[in-house]
Design a protein around this nucleic acid. Sequence first.
DNA 1: GTAGGTTAAAAAATCGATTATTTTATCTAG
DNA 2: CTAGATAAAATAATCGATTTTTTAACCTAC
Lengths: 233, 233
Amino acid sequence: MKTSLPNNSLSKSTRPAGPAGTASSRVFDHLRKDLVGGRFVAGEKLAINSLKERYQVGLSPLREALTKLAAYGLLVQENQRGFRVPKLSQDELDDIAQMRLEMEGMALERAIANGDSLWEADLLAAAHRLKRADISLDKGEEWEHLHTQFHRTLVAPCGSVWLLRFIEQLHDQFDRYRRLGPKMPTIRQELDEQHHQLVELALQRDTKSARELMDDHIHKSYEVALKRYQAHV
Amino acid sequence: MKTSLPNNSLSKSTRPAGPAGTASSRVFDHLRKDLVGGRFVAGEKLAINSLKERYQVGLSPLREALTKLAAYGLLVQENQRGFRVPKLSQDELDDIAQMRLEMEGMALERAIANGDSLWEADLLAAAHRLKRADISLDKGEEWEHLHTQFHRTLVAPCGSVWLLRFIEQLHDQFDRYRRLGPKMPTIRQELDEQHHQLVELALQRDTKSARELMDDHIHKSYEVALKRYQAHV
DNA sequence: GTAGGTTAAAAAATCGATTATTTTATCTAG
DNA sequence: CTAGATAAAATAATCGATTTTTTAACCTAC
């Protein structure tokens, strides 16, 4: 039972829906960002007609995007009564964090076992870009994007398409909590320090220490997210 | 960091779309069954217009269902060129099986730790129903449904909504391979034997043995699925 | 006043037709 | 013949209007 590498995903079809994509995929991307970034209040019912204006699309592509987001877990769909933003709860945050612990730990170990020198280069690059964005005052979503990208790169060569897929989904869910409230540069830098240590340990192929650090990293992030959630309620 | 219990899911909104559900959710359920049951050939491009007739719905609900299935991983959507049934590959089968090993093992251990006496009763009932369906000649999808139900019950009290969700998704994916070709009652009974042993070990709270058996069970299923895949190619 | 029922307004879901894009078939120049 | 361009057909995506269902407002009878 060996492991696989590339193949399908939500991504190929829907993510890089830049200027060329369909209306549906563009709204999907946009809404996804907005939901993860906390631009809707948890529990809120979505008024489809205002979304139509907000995102400048017709009903059909909008509904398709909402449907997809519901299947992905960023929305809840109730038959005959539309879509709403999922509520937040500590129980769920705990669940998400614990799953991240298990799955990203597993993925990191495998990535260290499989990753080649191209990966090493990508990793260094991703960490560097992240640090840069950290220093310069963050305009827009730049840091968030690079942060996501860094974690993605870290586990990319784990060899399991499904594991990567689940991890991505969990990240989106986790960020709904972590990104409550305003950004805190102090914490950001503290976590960023760990990012660099992670790269070091990965390059040294020190699986055990890397995993321990990853656990710690997720735990720290969890504490941040939890504080924000509690402050937010 | 404790664990959570109930909450959201794809299920609440979309699964129990019996007679009352929307057209979209009914087609979703139906298509999901058909895809998992292998009634479409892997790689095939779906002709939306024939699906419209086959499932007796209009374009909008049909497209919503297809979109949702793509987000769920049972279809692939390519911008501007519709939907197709994902290809099968041994790499992917290996990936899915390995992920099942990890995740269902984890879930089973947690379920044994958390499950109460109601769970014990449910488990016995589910195993019994499955055995009955096994004996009587299988008309329709009865056995498949009870089998799914059994495995769902087994891990139900694991305490993680997300873990359950991922496992369900992996099961659907796995079944695309396992259910290639005609049903084999012999193998079915052999696996069913393990189901009963699993119940026994779970009731005894013998975590270690239960997990080992679960690993073995998944491994056996994997070999069945692999044989079918190879015969199918 | 309040439970139960009726009606009006709002929202969700679906349909049928239109528009945009891709695919296939056909043509033409080299 | 064949590569590349062009036109026609097929398919995908989107729009606007209609139908269905839910929600809210308003009665009426106890």
